[in-house]
Each structure stands twice: as C-alpha cells, then as structure tokens.
C-alpha cells in the first residue's frame, strides 16, 4: 500500500486566517527519499505550508497524506489528538529558533520523547542519544545544557532530537536563518548527510546555494500559490516565470 511516488501528498491545501487566504489550493507530491526546497518571499505561505504538514497550523481545506495515511483526518477531538500524536512521531521538525528544551541536557533533549512515548529503558535511551548526537557531531557535548552551546550546536542537537523518533519525513523551517553566518555550514553539513542517507525532507530555506546543491526539486511560492516548480537547475538557472526571476534577482543581490 505504500506508494513511493506519493510518499508525501498534499492535496488542494487551503488555509485562511479570517479573510486572509495564506494558502490557495496547493498540491504537491514528494517521493520517498526526495528532497524538496520551498523558497519564496516572507509572507508567501511557505512556513504555513510546512507547518500544515504536521498540523501545527491546521488547514482550512485539503488533505495531507504521509505514507498512505491521512495526517489531517476528520475525527472527533480525542481520537484526533491520539491520531495526530502518533503521526507526529513520524514527522521530524526543525525550527528556526531551535526550540531546544533549556532545562534538559542534550542527552535528555534527545531521549525525553523516545523514553516517554516508546518506553525505552535508560540503557536503550543512552545508546540512542549517543548514536544520534554522534551523527550530528555533538557527542562530546552530550551532557551540556542548551545555554552552554552555540547556535549551530543547538540546531544540531535539535536535529538529533527529531531524528531520535526515527521519522519517515523531516521538515526544516528555515533551520539556518537565525544562525551567525559562520555557523550555517555545520548545520548544512548535517542536512547533507541526511540527504545522502535518503531521508525524505522538505526544507523551507533562504539559502539558494544550499537548496541548489542538495535538493531534487524546488518550489517557488508567492502569495499563497506555487508560482514555479522544478529541478533546481531549471528554477534557479532558467526560471520560466517573471515573478521567480524577480525574486531570485533581488534575493541574490541582497545576499551578495
């Protein structure tokens, strides 16, 4: 029943805040192992779309499917809460501002949810923390608190925390936007590593170079619609739409 071509499926996603329509009938398929970047000006709805995938922002219309299961199923409140908590275990998310738990060490940040939700023993949890923190190069800092870490280190721990639930899909919401420029690369390296392991990823980003180097597909969004979509070689080098060209020109001028 799992359809690798339609691993993540967004069907006619629509979202309004009152009269303001932030997502207008967006559809998107992501195959298993594919990496999709979403770019666009602020206010284009790209973060809202990402946050709709794990229902942090509920859609007002349309469907989200992951691996053959509908995420935003229409269920009574209590049943829905159970369903969505289960679904979210399969969807890792990394935030712009890390959102590490400041009262826990890196180890506890990684193991809290697996211990609580999957009933891991202390030994299993420790092994998991070591494995995941090693993967992001943070093993030496396993017993540090977030306040003792740099921004890049915090974000790497946050990635380890998401990976510890063994998600099927990873969402990155401007994961490097809040970082000092010299710290961006260490986070990008971790994301590249995940790409090499064929993790399915949807990445909202402002970093065109990074998007071009790791992504299979790029979506350019503006005003709640997908303006242009295609492989990075096309979207970045030969965009067909004026709006895309204008955005890229402004963005590249701003970045350099």
């Amino acid at each position: 029943m799992t359809d690798t071509e339609h691993f993540v499926e967004i069907k006619h996603a629509q979202k309004s805040f009152g009269k303001l329509e932030v997502l207008k009938d967006i559809s998107l398929n992501v195959a298993r192992g594919q990496i999709v970047a979403i770019i666009g000006p602020s206010g284009s709805g790209k973060s809202t779309l990402l946050r709709a995938i794990n229902d942090l922002d509920a859609l007002t219309g349309g469907e989200i499917w992951l691996d053959g299961v509908q995420v935003n199923r229409d269920l009574p409140y209590r049943q829905y809460e159970k369903h969505i908590n289960q679904m979210r275990q399969d969807i890792g998310m990394v935030f712009q501002h890390f959102n590490l738990f400041p009262h826990m060490t890196a180890r506890d940040n990684v193991t809290m949810a697996p211990k609580l939700l999957k009933g891991l023993s202390k030994a299993e949890a420790d092994a998991l923390a070591e494995e995941q923190l090693d993967k992001v190069g943070m093993l030496e800092r396993i017993d540090y608190y977030p306040s003792q870490l740099s921004g890049g280190q915090k974000q790497r721990v946050a990635i380890a925390r998401a990976l510890a639930m063994k998600p099927k899909l990873m969402l990155f919401d401007e994961a490097t936007s809040a970082l000092d420029p010299e710290l961006v690369d260490e986070v990008n390296q971790v994301m590249k590593k995940l790409a090499e392991e064929h993790m399915t990823m949807i990445i909202v980003t402002h970093e065109m170079d990074f998007a071009a180097s790791v992504c299979d597909r790029v979506l350019f969004m503006d005003k709640g619609v997908v303006v242009e979509e295609g492989p990075p070689s096309v979207v970045f080098k030969n965009p067909t739409k004026d709006r895309t060209r204008e955005f890229l020109r402004k963005h590249l001028a701003g970045a350099k």
Partner: peptide, 22 residues
C-alpha cells in the same frame, strides 16, 4: 516561549505530556 510547546508536540507528546515535561 510558544516554541517549547510546539517542539514538544512535534515529537509526538500530547498537550498534557508537553505541559508536564516541558
């Protein structure tokens, strides 16, 4: 910070668990 509740919910915690643990 609201991000704390969000981060706890995204790893699969219920609202009650997120309150209690985070």
């Amino acid at each position: 910070d609201k991000g704390q509740m969000e981060a706890a919910r995204t790893v699969g915690l219920s609202r009650g668990q997120a309150l209690r643990k985070v």
